[in-house]
């Protein structure tokens, strides 16, 4: 897991440096960071064993609506 975190941070840092040097718009950079963090959180939850299946989640919603 630590390997994953390190790789992720290096990747994120490297990409950020690249993006800043190419003078990308703030919106683009923030979207990039947001999606990277989303992916990071998803993988972290997998590594830590908090697996929440989106399918099951929506299934639960459908059940509670009563369809």
């Amino acid at each position: 897991m630590s390997g994953f975190i390190i790789c992720f941070l290096i990747g994120l840092g490297g990409s950020l440096v690249y993006l800043l040097r190419r003078k990308k718009s703030v919106k683009e950079i923030s979207l990039f960071v947001t999606f990277s963090l989303l992916g990071f959180i998803v993988w972290l939850s997998i590594f830590l064993g908090y697996k929440v299946s989106p399918d099951r989640f929506f299934g639960w919603i459908i059940d509670s609506i009563g369809l």
Partner: peptide, 8 residues
């Protein structure tokens, strides 16, 4: 730069 983080 939208496509790349989506891989993860």
């Amino acid at each position: 730069w939208i496509a790349i983080p989506l891989v993860l």
